[in-house]
């Protein structure tokens, strides 16, 4: 099992005067699947983006560690695979071209066998040379998983992982999450009961919305 952990230390996020969450303290460790639950607009996506290091928190800190050593922010992207409704891939390129570019920019060799096996798993192998602009929303969602898994990340962050997927796609995603969660750390932000049923532990964002004066 990979010895990866994410520690949230007094994490607070506000947008102007609006409080999204306050003082979130939690530790996520590899070998588990965690859930982030909460109603629409509760801040699940915001929290997952803060964990991914693409959005700053207002207060507090997120500490990513591998084998007990803190990962510096500029190296964080090498450890994280992120699937999100806000993620957009380059639609002027084919799936294969996207993956080749991503591998080069990530500084890893383009492992043809592994990338093709990912495309096969998510049912995109036959369409790998088609431009993404011709993909359906479900196919684009599957492609986001290939993108997220391409560099074998130690942390898989999934925001609404099954949106736009058909039943077969959902089953594929659930199998991948279960398998990946055995060795690595998986965090799912979702409202779907079936998504959250995969999790060992669920963190409800609504529990971190209290202003000090409200108590």
């Amino acid at each position: 099992m990979t010895d990866y952990s994410v520690k949230l230390n007094n994490l607070t996020k506000t947008f102007g005067w609006r409080l999204v969450f306050r003082n979130v303290n939690h530790e996520f460790v590899s070998g588990n699947i965690y859930g982030l639950a909460g109603s629409n607009g509760s801040g699940k996506s915001t929290l997952s983006r803060i964990i991914a290091g693409v959005v700053s928190s207002t207060k507090g800190k997120v500490v990513h560690s591998f084998k007990g050593i803190e990962i510096p922010p500029e190296k964080l992207h090498e450890q994280i695979g992120f699937v999100s409704p806000y993620l957009v891939l380059y639609d002027e390129f084919s799936a294969e071209e996207n993956l080749i570019h991503f591998a080069r920019i990530r500084g890893i060799p383009f492992d043809k066998d592994y990338n093709y096996s990912l495309l096969q798993t998510f049912g995109l192998y036959e369409r790998k040379r088609d431009f993404l602009k011709g993909y359906s929303s479900g196919m684009l969602q599957r492609m986001k998983f290939v993108f997220a898994l391409q560099h074998r990340p130690k942390l898989l962050l999934l925001d609404e992982p099954t949106s736009n997927l058909d039943n077969q796609g959902k089953e594929t995603v659930y199998k991948v999450i279960r398998d990946y969660g055995k060795e690595n750390l998986v965090i799912i932000a979702s409202n779907e009961d079936n998504d959250l049923a995969l999790c060992n532990e669920i963190l409800n964002i609504e529990d971190f919305k209290t202003n000090p004066g409200d108590e």
């Binding site: 693409v54 190296k75 992207h77 957009v88 891939l89 639609d91």
Partner: peptide, 16 residues
């Protein structure tokens, strides 16, 4: 405009 900023943030360091 195309929404690919997040993709770039996830594959490379800011200096890159």
């Amino acid at each position: 405009e195309r929404g690919t900023t997040l993709t770039l943030q996830l594959i490379s360091a800011p200096s890159t």
